[in-house]
Amino acid sequence: MSRVPSPPPPAEMSSGPVAESWCYTQIKVVKFSYMWTINNFSFCREEMGEVIKSSTFSSGANDKLKWCLRVNPKGLDEESKDYLSLYLLLVSCPKSEVRAKFKFSILNAKGEETKAMESQRAYRFVQGKDWGFKKFIRRDFLLDEANGLLPDDKLTLFCEVSVVQDSVNISGQNTMNMVKVPECRLADELGGLWENSRFTDCCLCVAGQEFQAHKAILAARSPVFSAMFEHEMEESKKNRVEINDVEPEVFKEMMCFIYTGKAPNLDKMADDLLAAADKYALERLKVMCEDALCSNLSVENAAEILILADLHSADQLKTQAVDFINYHASDVLETSGWKSMVVSHPHLVAEAYRSLASAQCPFLGPPRKRLKQS
């Protein structure tokens, strides 16, 4: 649940008159999402009104509101027999009622949201009550392989729920002597030191190019640089560091992050930047690179990204790559990247197969709970 924001200063709310007192009302909304995959969808019983329910879910471990999704594969009634019906059901509720908006969509073979439908307002739910769409999607369109909505005969539904909580009022009075504290510009100011090479005390040599930097900042941000300058190493004695395995453009992006906490060109060089972040123990930059690479996972590059993640101990990226390969196994196994990995990294192939087997055979063990970014 997000923290209630402070109200904007009255002088910034309007260029008009300023009242002596004010009130700011925040209506709290808890948002969460749920993904439900139905394997072997074409084998569902086709009687009209037949119901399939998901397991229950909530916004978190401490949330007492429990929900589930309900599907009628062949419609709810005679009117909707040519459609799939989809509903959000409130299973248990400690209150007399709650209000919530919802959005349903289908994830296609690429994991993209399609055929989205959402409620136009927050509906009133009581325990045992459901709301949804009797005519969510035509069955003939859903079952047509050309539309790519049932890869490997799996129907994957994605649901986003927004639950309306209580409202909170914050009130106060205006004073004539309003003090406005300026925003912190530390990142910009440190970035200026790097860009202008002011007050530098060490030189970093990268592929024949020299960059002036500040030992204190490098040591504070990177345990690797800290070790170089702290001990009686040649880098500490000469205040000069030779860097041979990072390209200059990648190095500059890494230094921008060290000084400012930002990497504006990360998406263009996420793979190389991940390697640099791993070498210099820049954990936050490493996770930022993992996130960017996750966003660009595809059938063509899944094997290469899995190898990269394994090489640099990028655990979150590795998990996402394995899950992606499992979901698109029939396509990924035909790529040149996968065939190369079979020869060069057989242990990763074995890991992917083990994960695929456990996903398809849940009876082999208890269900695993899916539970950071600093």
Rank of each mutant, 00 (worst) to 15 (best):
S2H: 04
R3W: 08
P5M: 01
S14Q: 05
G16Y: 08
V18Y: 03
A19T: 03
C23E: 02
T25P: 00
T25K: 00
I27E: 13
I27P: 03
N40F: 02
F41V: 00
E46Q: 10
G49F: 07
V51K: 06
I52R: 13
S55F: 07
S55Y: 11
S59C: 11
G60R: 08
N62V: 11
K64H: 08
N72W: 11
G75M: 11
G75V: 10
E79K: 07
S80P: 14
S80L: 10
K81W: 08
Y83M: 06
L86E: 01
L88C: 07
L88M: 06
L88V: 10
V91K: 13
S92W: 14
S92C: 12
K95F: 15
S96F: 10
V98S: 15
R99E: 12
A100L: 04
M117Q: 15
E118M: 02
R121W: 10
A122K: 12
K135H: 15
L143V: 04
L149R: 09
L150C: 00
F158G: 13
S162W: 05
V164S: 08
Q165E: 09
S167C: 07
M178N: 05
V181Q: 06
P182V: 03
C184N: 07
A187V: 05
D188K: 05
L190W: 05
R198E: 14
R198H: 15
T200E: 12
C203V: 15
V206R: 14
A207F: 12
A213E: 07
K215H: 13
A219M: 15
A220V: 03
R221P: 15
P223V: 14
P223H: 14
A227K: 03
E230M: 11
E247K: 07
C256N: 01
N265T: 05
L273Y: 03
A275E: 02
A276G: 01
A276V: 05
D278Y: 09
A281I: 09
C289M: 11
N296T: 11
V299N: 08
E304L: 05
I305Q: 07
A309N: 02
D310T: 09
D310L: 05
A314E: 03
L317P: 00
K318G: 12
K318N: 13
N326E: 13
S330G: 13
D331T: 11
D331N: 05
T335Y: 01
M341Q: 00
H345G: 01
P346M: 06
A350M: 09
A352Q: 09
A352N: 13
A352R: 02
Y353V: 09
R354C: 06
S355Q: 08
L356H: 05
A357F: 01
S358V: 09
P362Q: 15
L364V: 14
G365K: 12
P367N: 08
K369E: 04
